[in-house]
Amino acid sequence: MDKVVQSAAEAVADIADGSSIAVGGFGLCGVPQDLIDALREKGSGDLTVISNNCGIDGDGLGVLLEDRRISKVIASYVGENKAFAQQYLTGVLELELTPQGTIAERLRAGGVGIPGFYTITGSGTWVAEGGIPTKYDADGNVVKTSPPKETKEFDGKQYVLETAIVSDFALVKASKADRHGNLVFHESARNFNPPAAMSGKVCIVEAEQIVEPGEIDADEVHLPGVYVHRVIQSAGRKPIEKRTTRPKEA
């Protein structure tokens, strides 16, 4: 089945208001910039976004924050994004903080049909006990906190029950894709893109290179096409998250 569509706008056309979207990438590395920009142009709002972080001010998922299209974020890191922090602390959006490895495994579990799993990460902390502020009001008062999670002892240690994440859509960035949707990721872009792709009921991929079926050796495939529904050609935009320079020598 040829899964290539002609444009990012066509690929995201059915992402409606209120959708949940898992988005690959870390900072601005391996982020599906074209798909995010197309979603911004489409105008969908009240979105729940599941991603390691929410881009930076003015780029990546930051453009959706800028337009206030996101109502809830499940993430492990607020990071360098001032708009993210400001909207969280003034009640514009709800934030479910989740440890980095846990969010990756919750996404992967959703993709393989595992409803939940126990992990030692977060045991004995607010992650397990509850009480992390998830929503503030406009005056900065906490109006909602995370609930306590079920725990269980294994071999004398307490583990925390985490539930899987199944998203309505997944937006991911691949280095290479064939027309059947088999994917190859470049180095660290492989950290969150595969589990995000697996979690989506509909997985949409932008690829730097699209090849014919059979041109990717089976041993090179990082994610099989069974998880992928649509593929577009990436425009190749790769913004730099932090630029550090030094004076040129005379």
Rank of each mutant, 00 (worst) to 15 (best):
74 I>D: 01
85 A>H: 10
104 A>E: 09
92 V>M: 15
78 V>L: 13
107 L>N: 02
95 L>Q: 06
83 A>C: 13
95 L>E: 06
94 E>V: 03
107 L>F: 01
93 L>W: 05
97 L>K: 10
76 S>P: 03
81 N>Y: 07
73 V>M: 06
109 A>I: 12
80 E>N: 15
106 R>S: 10
101 G>M: 04
107 L>K: 02
98 T>F: 02
72 K>H: 08
97 L>H: 12
76 S>G: 13
68 R>G: 08
72 K>D: 01
75 A>F: 09
72 K>R: 13
101 G>L: 04
89 L>G: 11
103 I>G: 03
70 I>D: 00
97 L>C: 09
92 V>F: 15
105 E>P: 00
83 A>W: 10
93 L>E: 04
89 L>F: 15
85 A>D: 11
78 V>G: 07
69 R>C: 00
76 S>N: 11
69 R>D: 00
68 R>F: 04
86 Q>Y: 15
83 A>P: 07
75 A>I: 11
111 G>H: 00
77 Y>K: 12
89 L>R: 15
97 L>M: 13
76 S>F: 03
78 V>T: 11
86 Q>I: 13
91 G>P: 02
94 E>S: 06
98 T>S: 05
71 S>E: 07
84 F>V: 06
80 E>A: 15
89 L>V: 14
96 E>R: 10
103 I>V: 14
99 P>E: 11
72 K>E: 07
82 K>T: 14
84 F>Q: 02
79 G>M: 03
82 K>Q: 13
91 G>L: 04
91 G>R: 02
101 G>K: 03
108 R>T: 03
75 A>R: 07
101 G>Q: 04
102 T>N: 04
76 S>H: 06
70 I>P: 00
100 Q>D: 14
72 K>F: 01
82 K>H: 12
75 A>G: 14
97 L>Y: 11
111 G>C: 00
95 L>F: 12
94 E>M: 02
87 Q>P: 04
68 R>V: 06
100 Q>I: 08
85 A>C: 10
79 G>F: 01
108 R>A: 09
84 F>D: 01
99 P>D: 10
98 T>R: 02
101 G>F: 05
87 Q>W: 05
104 A>G: 11
92 V>R: 15
70 I>F: 01
70 I>E: 00
81 N>W: 05
70 I>Y: 01
93 L>C: 09
71 S>G: 09
86 Q>R: 15
85 A>K: 10
94 E>H: 03
